[in-house]
């Protein structure tokens, strides 16, 4: 009897570690088949697999926010974003009634990544933030160093959620500054040279005071000008129309997945 109780308690403990969102509010039902790391292609070694699995689980439990990774070989012609959204929905990821979470999908054949966000994930993972994570992972993904890329996703994703909860989601203004383009090393002296030519040109003009008079404005007899006829005739008009440039916005854009859930997200190649 004691053994049965121990087994039962262990089961409850495992359950609370692996899918705590479901354990906590009971919404959505049990989904033990849908681990937070699903590597159907086998890009990770066994050690890596369990390490990443633990990392995702721990971070998710700690933040009460699901972070999941799905690796597939081919997308079968579907878009990576659709596939990621469907993986999120079918995996029943997401904490609470809003399904707070983010899922990273990797297609090893199509060399594509996509992130699908839901619930609070839409707030925490802004469009700029998603592209920033993609940028951070790209080199590792391209080199086949998937474990490191997933660590980056877990670490960075966790940070995004923390930042959002502090009231300031990671957005375009937080993107690290790239160094100033080298083109300025050419533009700056060129502008300097143009200014120098203008200034020195005006200094040279000071030395030249002999020039012909173009007109005889100084010799107009005072009060002699009289406009006797003045006609302003409208002929025709033309109207040109140009489309307004769309403003680049910050924040998160959303779309609806095939199951009708609202998702945020973004994708890229590696």
């Amino acid at each position: 009897m004691k053994k049965i109780w121990t087994f039962f308690l262990l089961l409850v403990f495992c359950f609370s570690i692996s899918v705590p969102a479901l354990a906590e509010d009971g919404a959505g039902g049990f989904a033990d088949a849908h681990y937070r790391l699903q590597d159907s292609v086998g890009v990770l070694t066994e050690e890596e697999n369990s390490e990443i699995q633990n990392l995702l689980d721990e971070t998710s439990v700690q933040l009460q926010f699901d972070l999941a990774v799905v690796v597939v070989d081919t997308l079968d012609g579907r878009s990576a974003q659709e596939w990621a959204d469907d993986s999120f929905d079918s995996g029943q990821f997401g904490y609470g009634s809003n399904k707070d979470g983010a899922l990273l999908l990797i297609s090893t054949v199509d060399r594509t990544w996509a992130i699908s966000t839901c619930g609070y994930g839409i707030t925490a993972f802004t469009d700029a933030g998603i592209q920033y994570i993609g940028e951070q992972m790209r080199d590792d993904l391209a080199a086949g160093n998937y474990a490191e890329a997933f660590r980056t996703f877990a670490r960075q994703g966790g940070q995004f959620v923390t930042m959002a909860r502090e009231g300031r989601p990671f957005d375009s203004s937080d993107l690290p500054k790239k160094p100033l383009s080298w083109i300025w090393l050419i533009i700056s002296p060129a502008i300097g040279f143009v200014v120098a030519i203008i200034v020195v040109g005006s200094m040279k003009r000071q030395l030249r005071t002999v020039r012909r008079q173009a007109a005889a404005g100084g010799y107009v007899r005072e009060g002699s000008m009289n406009v006797t006829e003045s006609k302003d005739l409208f002929l025709y008009h033309t109207i040109d129309r140009t489309e307004k440039a769309k403003n680049t916005s910050s924040g998160s854009s959303t779309h609806t997945s095939s199951s009708g859930t609202t998702h945020g997200g973004g994708s890229g190649k590696f």
């Binding site: 007899r221 000008m225 033309t238 489309e243």
Partner: peptide
């Protein structure tokens, strides 16, 4: 402009001026 487009209307006119003006000691 409206919400989608910027408009530029160019009106063309034929303008004429006639009159007299005097010059002295040019």
């Amino acid at each position: 402009s409206d919400s989608n487009y910027n408009y530029t209307e160019t009106s063309y006119f034929s303008v004429s001026r006639s009159g007299v003006i005097g010059f002295e000691q040019v």
